[in-house]
């Protein structure tokens, strides 16, 4: 049985060389446009000063140099709060926000998707529409509320709002709805508690969604949606600090490009790691029914 299955599976995935080429070609054509700004930032970061300000501007670098990166390390060495402190802040905020957001979202999504109770539909609709709340105007009242809670200029201001973002619960609920009820019933008959059903059945079954959510969360936390609520230097995150460095004047245009490249590296790394894990786990075990 397993042998037959393996054979069918193999036949399905192995396609002609020509088919592969067409696919890669299509992806490359669109991919060029997707990658353009990233490549542009790298090019800018490798340009010496006179090339950056050349008119008309050129896309490709003529005389690549690491001067901008060197200047960046110099500038980092010159900050009065050691760079390790910024990195530590980033790590603390990133880990707590991401883990917390995923746990809270998974917990909230499970009963909404798989339990029947009064108010379920109302809360589900409320979540969908609360996605609309991220309008720019809420920043001002948000600041006032945080100030009242005494959270301005603490880690809480960075962490707590991202824990409660509606995107996670929205995404996970819609994925969990698709888990067959029979799977959960089997678990219940075997004596699983609701908590066990959530972590042992529901969460592993929506693993691709969890990893996707991981990418979204780290991405938005790293890019610092809430950095306006922090003014003390010791509590700022690494991207915020780098941004400050880069923002200080025209002479640092090259450094700014170097910073952009450095700041992008972390989300890209997280993306690659989590995407390759999606493939590993789901290609063989992601059977729903």
């Amino acid at each position: 049985m397993t042998k037959v299955r393996k054979k069918i599976y193999k036949r399905r995935i192995s396609r002609s060389f020509g088919g592969d080429m067409v696919m890669v070609l299509v992806l490359t054509v669109f991919g060029l446009f997707m990658a353009m700004p990233f490549v542009y930032a790298i090019m800018q970061s490798l340009k010496p000063m006179e090339e950056i300000f050349a008119f008309p501007p050129r896309f490709f670098v003529m005389h690549p140099t690491l001067e901008n990166y060197y200047m960046l390390t110099q500038a980092i060495g010159g900050t009065w709060v050691p760079v390790g402190r910024y990195a530590l802040n980033s790590i603390i905020v990133l880990i707590i926000s991401t883990a917390g957001h995923i746990i809270i979202a998974a917990m909230g999504a499970f009963p909404l998707a798989k339990m029947r109770f009064k108010g379920n539909r109302a809360i589900s609709n409320f979540i969908t529409y609360s996605l609309l709340f991220t309008a720019p105007v809420t920043a001002f009242p948000q600041y006032i509320i945080m100030a009242k809670c005494g959270m301005i200029n603490t880690y809480y201001a960075l962490i707590l709002p991202s824990l409660a973002a509606p995107i996670g619960i929205f995404l996970l609920k819609n994925f969990m709805v698709q888990i067959p009820d029979s799977l959960l019933e089997a678990a219940r008959i075997d004596g699983a508690t609701n908590f066990q059903m959530l972590w042992k059945i529901a969460v592993p079954n929506v693993r691709p969604a969890i990893l996707t959510l991981l990418i979204f969360t780290t991405q938005s936390v790293w890019n610092g949606a809430n950095t306006g609520f922090i003014y003390s230097e010791q509590l700022k995150t690494l991207p915020t600090m780098l941004n400050q460095l880069a923002a200080s004047g025209m002479a640092r245009a090259g450094v700014a490009a170097a910073v952009a490249v450095v700041v992008m590296l972390v989300p890209i790394a997280i993306f690659i790691v989590s995407q390759s894990r999606i493939i590993e786990t789901m290609a063989y075990s992601g059977i729903k029914e």
């Binding site: 109770f117 108010g119 105007v137």
Partner: peptide
Amino acid sequence: LGFTFIIPWLVGCTTFFVRPFLMT
């Protein structure tokens, strides 16, 4: 039981998103 699972999110969302929104 359903509610207890959702409460952490509901509290957070109300504080940081719904309340500011109603304030506007």
